[in-house]
Design a protein around this nucleic acid. Structure first.
Lengths: 137, 137
DNA sequence: TAACAAATGCACTTCCATTGCACTTACTAT
DNA sequence: ATAGTAAGTGCAATGGAAGTGCATTTGTTA
Protein backbone atom coordinates (compact mmCIF):
# COMPACT_ATOMS: atom_id res chain seq x y z
CA UNK A 1 0.00 0.00 0.00
CA UNK A 2 1.49 3.26 -1.15
CA UNK A 3 1.43 6.23 1.16
CA UNK A 4 -0.02 9.47 -0.07
CA UNK A 5 3.46 10.95 -0.26
CA UNK A 6 4.58 8.14 -2.49
CA UNK A 7 1.61 8.59 -4.78
CA UNK A 8 2.29 12.28 -5.20
CA UNK A 9 6.01 11.82 -5.65
CA UNK A 10 5.54 9.11 -8.23
CA UNK A 11 3.56 11.59 -10.28
CA UNK A 12 6.13 14.32 -9.86
CA UNK A 13 3.95 16.42 -7.65
CA UNK A 14 5.57 18.28 -4.85
CA UNK A 15 4.31 17.09 -1.48
CA UNK A 16 2.63 19.71 0.65
CA UNK A 17 0.29 19.45 3.60
CA UNK A 18 -2.57 20.86 1.59
CA UNK A 19 -2.10 18.46 -1.27
CA UNK A 20 -1.99 15.48 1.00
CA UNK A 21 -5.19 16.55 2.70
CA UNK A 22 -6.96 17.07 -0.58
CA UNK A 23 -5.75 13.76 -1.94
CA UNK A 24 -6.94 12.03 1.20
CA UNK A 25 -10.31 13.72 0.86
CA UNK A 26 -10.66 12.49 -2.70
CA UNK A 27 -9.76 8.95 -1.72
CA UNK A 28 -12.34 8.89 1.04
CA UNK A 29 -15.06 10.33 -1.12
CA UNK A 30 -16.39 7.68 -3.40
CA UNK A 31 -18.13 10.08 -5.72
CA UNK A 32 -16.99 12.86 -7.97
CA UNK A 33 -16.71 16.17 -6.16
CA UNK A 34 -17.06 19.78 -7.15
CA UNK A 35 -14.68 22.51 -6.22
CA UNK A 36 -17.29 23.73 -3.77
CA UNK A 37 -17.36 20.35 -2.09
CA UNK A 38 -13.65 20.62 -1.47
CA UNK A 39 -14.07 24.19 -0.36
CA UNK A 40 -16.65 23.17 2.22
CA UNK A 41 -14.38 20.45 3.49
CA UNK A 42 -11.47 22.84 3.91
CA UNK A 43 -12.95 26.12 4.98
CA UNK A 44 -9.64 27.34 6.29
CA UNK A 45 -7.90 27.02 2.96
CA UNK A 46 -8.24 29.47 0.15
CA UNK A 47 -10.39 28.70 -2.82
CA UNK A 48 -7.58 29.48 -5.22
CA UNK A 49 -5.28 26.98 -3.61
CA UNK A 50 -7.89 24.26 -3.87
CA UNK A 51 -8.58 25.25 -7.44
CA UNK A 52 -4.95 25.15 -8.43
CA UNK A 53 -4.31 21.97 -6.52
CA UNK A 54 -7.04 20.18 -8.39
CA UNK A 55 -5.71 21.60 -11.66
CA UNK A 56 -2.28 20.26 -10.82
CA UNK A 57 -3.75 16.87 -10.00
CA UNK A 58 -5.55 16.99 -13.32
CA UNK A 59 -2.41 17.79 -15.28
CA UNK A 60 -0.53 14.99 -13.59
CA UNK A 61 -3.42 12.60 -14.23
CA UNK A 62 -4.25 11.96 -10.61
CA UNK A 63 -7.80 13.14 -11.09
CA UNK A 64 -9.97 13.52 -14.13
CA UNK A 65 -12.59 16.06 -14.83
CA UNK A 66 -16.21 15.05 -15.31
CA UNK A 67 -18.85 17.01 -17.07
CA UNK A 68 -22.05 15.39 -15.92
CA UNK A 69 -24.38 17.97 -17.37
CA UNK A 70 -25.13 19.76 -14.13
CA UNK A 71 -23.08 22.68 -15.40
CA UNK A 72 -20.58 22.32 -12.60
CA UNK A 73 -17.40 20.45 -13.32
CA UNK A 74 -16.63 17.61 -11.00
CA UNK A 75 -13.45 15.74 -10.29
CA UNK A 76 -12.69 12.16 -9.36
CA UNK A 77 -9.56 10.16 -8.75
CA UNK A 78 -8.16 8.27 -11.66
CA UNK A 79 -7.83 4.54 -11.31
CA UNK A 80 -4.50 2.84 -11.14
CA UNK A 81 -3.01 3.08 -14.60
CA UNK A 82 -5.80 5.33 -15.79
CA UNK A 83 -5.31 6.67 -19.27
CA UNK A 84 -7.68 9.57 -19.12
CA UNK A 85 -5.89 11.32 -21.89
CA UNK A 86 -5.72 8.38 -24.23
CA UNK A 87 -8.62 7.91 -26.55
CA UNK A 88 -10.99 5.02 -26.27
CA UNK A 89 -9.92 4.13 -22.79
CA UNK A 90 -12.49 6.19 -21.04
CA UNK A 91 -15.01 4.81 -18.66
CA UNK A 92 -18.49 6.18 -18.34
CA UNK A 93 -20.05 8.19 -15.58
CA UNK A 94 -23.39 7.86 -13.93
CA UNK A 95 -25.25 10.86 -12.64
CA UNK A 96 -28.10 10.34 -10.21
CA UNK A 97 -31.02 12.66 -10.85
CA UNK A 98 -32.17 12.11 -7.30
CA UNK A 99 -29.17 12.63 -5.02
CA UNK A 100 -27.27 14.59 -7.65
CA UNK A 101 -24.15 12.55 -7.16
CA UNK A 102 -21.90 11.38 -9.94
CA UNK A 103 -19.83 8.24 -9.85
CA UNK A 104 -17.35 6.57 -12.15
CA UNK A 105 -18.32 3.22 -13.56
CA UNK A 106 -14.77 2.27 -14.24
CA UNK A 107 -15.50 -1.29 -15.21
CA UNK A 108 -17.89 -0.16 -17.91
CA UNK A 109 -15.97 0.75 -20.99
CA UNK A 110 -17.50 2.93 -23.62
CA UNK A 111 -18.55 1.03 -26.72
CA UNK A 112 -17.02 1.93 -30.04
CA UNK A 113 -19.06 4.66 -31.65
CA UNK A 114 -19.22 4.87 -35.40
CA UNK A 115 -19.00 8.31 -36.89
CA UNK A 116 -19.66 9.33 -40.51
CA UNK A 117 -16.92 9.41 -43.13
CA UNK A 118 -14.59 12.33 -42.76
CA UNK A 119 -15.05 12.53 -39.02
CA UNK A 120 -12.26 11.45 -36.74
CA UNK A 121 -13.18 10.35 -33.25
CA UNK A 122 -10.61 11.25 -30.63
CA UNK A 123 -12.50 10.67 -27.46
CA UNK A 124 -15.96 10.23 -26.07
CA UNK A 125 -17.84 11.70 -23.19
CA UNK A 126 -20.65 9.52 -21.98
CA UNK A 127 -22.85 10.28 -19.02
CA UNK A 128 -25.77 8.08 -18.13
CA UNK A 129 -28.40 9.77 -16.03
CA UNK A 130 -30.95 8.10 -13.86
CA UNK A 131 -31.31 6.75 -10.36
CA UNK A 132 -28.33 5.30 -8.54
CA UNK A 133 -28.29 2.13 -6.48
CA UNK A 134 -28.57 3.95 -3.19
CA UNK A 135 -31.61 5.94 -4.28
CA UNK A 136 -33.43 3.17 -6.11
CA UNK A 137 -33.13 0.63 -3.30
CA UNK B 1 -42.72 23.22 -47.36
CA UNK B 2 -43.99 24.79 -44.18
CA UNK B 3 -43.46 28.45 -43.60
CA UNK B 4 -41.83 29.59 -40.39
CA UNK B 5 -45.16 30.90 -39.17
CA UNK B 6 -46.72 27.53 -39.71
CA UNK B 7 -43.96 25.78 -37.84
CA UNK B 8 -44.30 28.06 -34.85
CA UNK B 9 -48.08 27.91 -34.84
CA UNK B 10 -48.10 24.16 -35.06
CA UNK B 11 -46.09 24.06 -31.86
CA UNK B 12 -48.34 26.56 -30.13
CA UNK B 13 -45.77 29.31 -30.14
CA UNK B 14 -46.94 32.81 -30.65
CA UNK B 15 -45.52 34.26 -33.84
CA UNK B 16 -43.41 37.36 -33.40
CA UNK B 17 -40.86 39.01 -35.62
CA UNK B 18 -38.07 38.15 -33.23
CA UNK B 19 -39.01 34.52 -33.02
CA UNK B 20 -39.21 34.17 -36.76
CA UNK B 21 -35.78 35.69 -37.16
CA UNK B 22 -34.26 33.44 -34.55
CA UNK B 23 -35.90 30.39 -36.02
CA UNK B 24 -34.60 31.34 -39.44
CA UNK B 25 -31.15 31.81 -38.00
CA UNK B 26 -31.23 28.35 -36.49
CA UNK B 27 -32.37 26.79 -39.74
CA UNK B 28 -29.59 28.42 -41.68
CA UNK B 29 -26.93 27.49 -39.18
CA UNK B 30 -26.11 23.86 -39.57
CA UNK B 31 -24.35 23.58 -36.26
CA UNK B 32 -25.39 23.97 -32.66
CA UNK B 33 -25.21 27.55 -31.47
CA UNK B 34 -24.60 29.21 -28.15
CA UNK B 35 -26.62 32.05 -26.75
CA UNK B 36 -23.69 34.31 -27.55
CA UNK B 37 -23.81 33.25 -31.17
CA UNK B 38 -27.40 34.35 -31.36
CA UNK B 39 -26.53 37.51 -29.48
CA UNK B 40 -23.85 38.37 -32.00
CA UNK B 41 -26.23 37.76 -34.85
CA UNK B 42 -28.89 40.04 -33.37
CA UNK B 43 -27.01 42.83 -31.69
CA UNK B 44 -30.05 45.04 -31.68
CA UNK B 45 -32.12 42.63 -29.65
CA UNK B 46 -31.84 42.25 -25.94
CA UNK B 47 -30.03 39.28 -24.48
CA UNK B 48 -32.96 38.41 -22.27
CA UNK B 49 -35.31 38.17 -25.20
CA UNK B 50 -32.99 35.83 -27.02
CA UNK B 51 -32.53 33.83 -23.87
CA UNK B 52 -36.22 33.49 -23.24
CA UNK B 53 -36.96 32.79 -26.86
CA UNK B 54 -34.59 29.88 -26.92
CA UNK B 55 -36.06 28.65 -23.64
CA UNK B 56 -39.51 28.80 -25.19
CA UNK B 57 -38.30 26.91 -28.23
CA UNK B 58 -36.80 24.36 -25.92
CA UNK B 59 -40.00 23.88 -23.96
CA UNK B 60 -41.98 23.45 -27.14
CA UNK B 61 -39.41 20.99 -28.45
CA UNK B 62 -38.32 23.07 -31.41
CA UNK B 63 -34.73 23.07 -30.25
CA UNK B 64 -32.81 20.84 -27.91
CA UNK B 65 -30.02 21.71 -25.58
CA UNK B 66 -26.59 20.22 -26.04
CA UNK B 67 -23.90 19.90 -23.45
CA UNK B 68 -20.78 19.24 -25.50
CA UNK B 69 -18.34 19.65 -22.67
CA UNK B 70 -17.18 23.14 -23.56
CA UNK B 71 -19.03 24.43 -20.54
CA UNK B 72 -21.33 26.54 -22.64
CA UNK B 73 -24.73 25.14 -23.47
CA UNK B 74 -25.56 25.00 -27.13
CA UNK B 75 -28.83 24.67 -28.95
CA UNK B 76 -29.84 23.03 -32.17
CA UNK B 77 -33.08 22.50 -34.03
CA UNK B 78 -34.89 19.30 -33.40
CA UNK B 79 -35.55 17.05 -36.33
CA UNK B 80 -39.04 16.39 -37.59
CA UNK B 81 -40.71 14.22 -34.96
CA UNK B 82 -37.84 14.58 -32.57
CA UNK B 83 -38.45 13.04 -29.18
CA UNK B 84 -35.84 14.90 -27.25
CA UNK B 85 -37.62 14.33 -24.00
CA UNK B 86 -38.18 10.64 -24.44
CA UNK B 87 -35.45 8.44 -23.15
CA UNK B 88 -33.39 6.29 -25.45
CA UNK B 89 -34.38 8.21 -28.50
CA UNK B 90 -31.54 10.64 -28.34
CA UNK B 91 -29.00 11.03 -31.05
CA UNK B 92 -25.40 11.75 -30.39
CA UNK B 93 -23.42 14.90 -30.93
CA UNK B 94 -20.04 15.48 -32.42
CA UNK B 95 -17.77 18.21 -31.16
CA UNK B 96 -14.84 19.27 -33.30
CA UNK B 97 -11.74 20.01 -31.27
CA UNK B 98 -10.41 22.07 -34.14
CA UNK B 99 -13.18 24.44 -35.19
CA UNK B 100 -15.02 24.08 -31.90
CA UNK B 101 -18.32 23.45 -33.62
CA UNK B 102 -20.85 20.92 -32.52
CA UNK B 103 -23.24 19.11 -34.81
CA UNK B 104 -26.03 16.62 -34.38
CA UNK B 105 -25.51 13.19 -35.82
CA UNK B 106 -29.20 12.49 -35.97
CA UNK B 107 -28.92 9.24 -37.84
CA UNK B 108 -26.62 7.82 -35.21
CA UNK B 109 -28.62 6.48 -32.34
CA UNK B 110 -27.02 5.94 -28.99
CA UNK B 111 -26.37 2.29 -28.24
CA UNK B 112 -27.91 0.69 -25.21
CA UNK B 113 -25.61 1.18 -22.27
CA UNK B 114 -25.58 -1.41 -19.55
CA UNK B 115 -25.44 -0.15 -16.00
CA UNK B 116 -24.81 -2.15 -12.84
CA UNK B 117 -27.61 -3.71 -10.83
CA UNK B 118 -29.54 -1.21 -8.79
CA UNK B 119 -28.92 1.59 -11.23
CA UNK B 120 -31.74 2.86 -13.41
CA UNK B 121 -30.84 4.55 -16.66
CA UNK B 122 -33.18 7.36 -17.64
CA UNK B 123 -31.23 9.05 -20.35
CA UNK B 124 -27.82 9.34 -21.86
CA UNK B 125 -25.61 12.19 -22.96
CA UNK B 126 -23.06 11.13 -25.51
CA UNK B 127 -20.62 13.50 -27.14
CA UNK B 128 -17.93 12.28 -29.48
CA UNK B 129 -14.99 14.64 -29.76
CA UNK B 130 -12.49 14.77 -32.55
CA UNK B 131 -12.06 16.34 -35.95
CA UNK B 132 -15.04 17.07 -38.13
CA UNK B 133 -15.30 16.41 -41.86
CA UNK B 134 -14.58 20.02 -42.77
CA UNK B 135 -11.45 20.19 -40.68
CA UNK B 136 -10.08 16.74 -41.53
CA UNK B 137 -10.43 17.15 -45.29
C1' DT C 1 -61.87 49.00 -28.53
C1' DA C 2 -61.23 47.66 -23.86
C1' DA C 3 -59.07 44.22 -21.20
C1' DC C 4 -56.04 40.71 -20.50
C1' DA C 5 -52.06 37.82 -21.52
C1' DA C 6 -47.81 37.26 -23.39
C1' DA C 7 -43.39 39.21 -25.19
C1' DT C 8 -39.72 42.40 -24.80
C1' DG C 9 -36.14 45.44 -22.72
C1' DC C 10 -33.48 47.12 -18.86
C1' DA C 11 -31.12 46.53 -14.71
C1' DC C 12 -29.55 43.49 -11.49
C1' DT C 13 -27.89 39.40 -9.19
C1' DT C 14 -25.64 35.03 -8.57
C1' DC C 15 -22.48 31.46 -9.33
C1' DC C 16 -18.53 29.31 -11.08
C1' DA C 17 -14.09 29.73 -13.23
C1' DT C 18 -9.90 32.11 -13.68
C1' DT C 19 -5.96 35.45 -13.09
C1' DG C 20 -2.43 38.96 -11.09
C1' DC C 21 0.33 39.93 -7.54
C1' DA C 22 2.41 39.70 -3.11
C1' DC C 23 4.01 36.58 0.34
C1' DT C 24 5.48 32.16 2.15
C1' DT C 25 7.22 27.62 1.88
C1' DA C 26 10.03 23.95 0.01
C1' DC C 27 13.91 22.23 -2.82
C1' DT C 28 18.95 22.81 -4.69
C1' DA C 29 23.56 23.94 -5.08
C1' DT C 30 27.24 25.69 -3.05
C1' DA D 1 23.87 25.00 7.00
C1' DT D 2 22.39 28.70 4.10
C1' DA D 3 21.49 31.63 0.34
C1' DG D 4 19.03 31.69 -3.79
C1' DT D 5 15.49 30.13 -6.71
C1' DA D 6 11.38 27.86 -8.00
C1' DA D 7 6.98 26.52 -6.65
C1' DG D 8 2.87 26.87 -3.56
C1' DT D 9 -0.48 29.70 -1.15
C1' DG D 10 -3.65 33.58 0.01
C1' DC D 11 -6.10 37.79 -1.08
C1' DA D 12 -8.47 40.58 -4.23
C1' DA D 13 -10.50 41.23 -8.30
C1' DT D 14 -12.32 40.08 -12.97
C1' DG D 15 -15.12 37.88 -16.51
C1' DG D 16 -18.63 35.11 -18.54
C1' DA D 17 -22.81 32.68 -18.56
C1' DA D 18 -27.26 31.94 -16.51
C1' DG D 19 -31.14 33.54 -14.43
C1' DT D 20 -34.84 36.95 -12.25
C1' DG D 21 -37.99 41.14 -11.19
C1' DC D 22 -40.33 44.68 -12.97
C1' DA D 23 -41.96 48.12 -16.13
C1' DT D 24 -43.30 48.73 -20.91
C1' DT D 25 -44.88 47.28 -25.30
C1' DT D 26 -47.20 44.25 -28.37
C1' DG D 27 -50.69 40.96 -29.64
C1' DT D 28 -55.07 38.38 -29.01
C1' DT D 29 -59.73 38.08 -27.88
C1' DA D 30 -64.18 39.12 -26.12
Amino acid sequence: METIEQVLESKNIRVTAMRMLIYKFLVEKEVAVTLSDIENAFVKADRTTLYRTIKTFEEKVIVHQIDDGTGITKYALCEEGCNCDIKNDLHLHFHCNNCNETICLTEHKIPQIKVPDGFVSENVNLVVKGICDKCSG
